[in-house]
Simulated scan of single mutants.
Amino acid sequence: METSAPLLGEPLPVELMNTAWADRDGVHDALRDPGGVRAWLHAVSARTGFTAPDGPDCPDGPVDLTDDELGRFGDRLVGLRDALRRLAAEVTADPRPAAASRTRELEAAVTALNRAAGESPHWSVLSWTPGQEPSRHTRSHGEAGSAAVSALAEESIAFFAQDARNRLRACLAPGCVLYFVKNHPRREWCSAGCGNRARSARHYQRHRPGTA
């Protein structure tokens, strides 16, 4: 199963924000059910470094959650996503009503982010198999889902605490609710598709009947 969320190669906190996305039918939630949570987690697993909880019976590999764990993890992930979208709206002065987070207050968003980061003790470990490139993983004594949320929250705190947040943008193409990091001076939209829609809308406004 593939995730319905658009994956634009953005930093992981921004990819999580963009699990709320829109099309002509309205705003959608890629994390609306355990299947959607599993699909998104698997889609980004190569970029996360999340591993199973630390212990003798836990293999060192990507997190794989049971259905019960997915339910709990999904609720925490959505809560973190909503907090991040509220912080993003603050940084970008986001004017889009359809993009508004369910977390309305800035203080509540900050509290939710900090709580998520501290939910599960986690730390980094280095893996290095002879003949292969070394890699960094995140380990935890807690439940795998909690560890993953905490690690994502930690990465999100680093993102918003650094200058990278100043390059965060709300995509203002018609109907879009996504965010992106402006990684090129001429970039205005989250994707080429949104750029095309925005230019088409501008063209229509300039040439519609009755326009002076």
Rank of each mutant, 00 (worst) to 15 (best):
7 L>N: 03
10 E>M: 10
16 L>V: 12
21 W>C: 06
22 A>V: 06
25 D>A: 15
28 H>L: 05
32 R>G: 07
34 P>G: 08
35 G>W: 00
38 R>N: 10
49 G>R: 11
50 F>R: 04
53 P>Y: 04
62 P>I: 12
68 D>T: 14
68 D>P: 00
68 D>C: 00
70 L>A: 12
72 R>N: 10
73 F>K: 00
74 G>V: 07
76 R>Y: 00
76 R>V: 00
76 R>G: 14
77 L>Y: 04
78 V>C: 02
82 D>K: 03
84 L>H: 01
87 L>C: 11
88 A>E: 02
89 A>T: 08
89 A>S: 15
89 A>P: 09
92 T>Y: 11
94 D>A: 04
95 P>Q: 04
97 P>Q: 11
97 P>K: 04
98 A>S: 10
99 A>H: 04
103 T>A: 08
105 E>S: 12
107 E>Y: 07
110 V>W: 12
113 L>Y: 09
113 L>V: 06
113 L>W: 10
116 A>K: 01
117 A>H: 09
118 G>M: 06
123 W>R: 13
124 S>H: 09
127 S>H: 13
128 W>G: 00
129 T>Y: 01
131 G>M: 06
133 E>Y: 06
134 P>L: 11
136 R>H: 09
140 S>F: 03
141 H>N: 04
146 S>C: 05
149 V>I: 14
149 V>D: 01
154 E>C: 03
158 A>P: 00
159 F>S: 00
161 A>E: 06
163 D>L: 05
165 R>S: 04
169 R>Y: 07
181 V>I: 08
184 H>Y: 03
188 E>G: 11
188 E>V: 10
189 W>R: 02
194 C>N: 09
194 C>V: 05
194 C>G: 11
203 H>L: 13
204 Y>P: 00
206 R>K: 15
208 R>S: 08
212 A>I: 08
212 A>T: 12
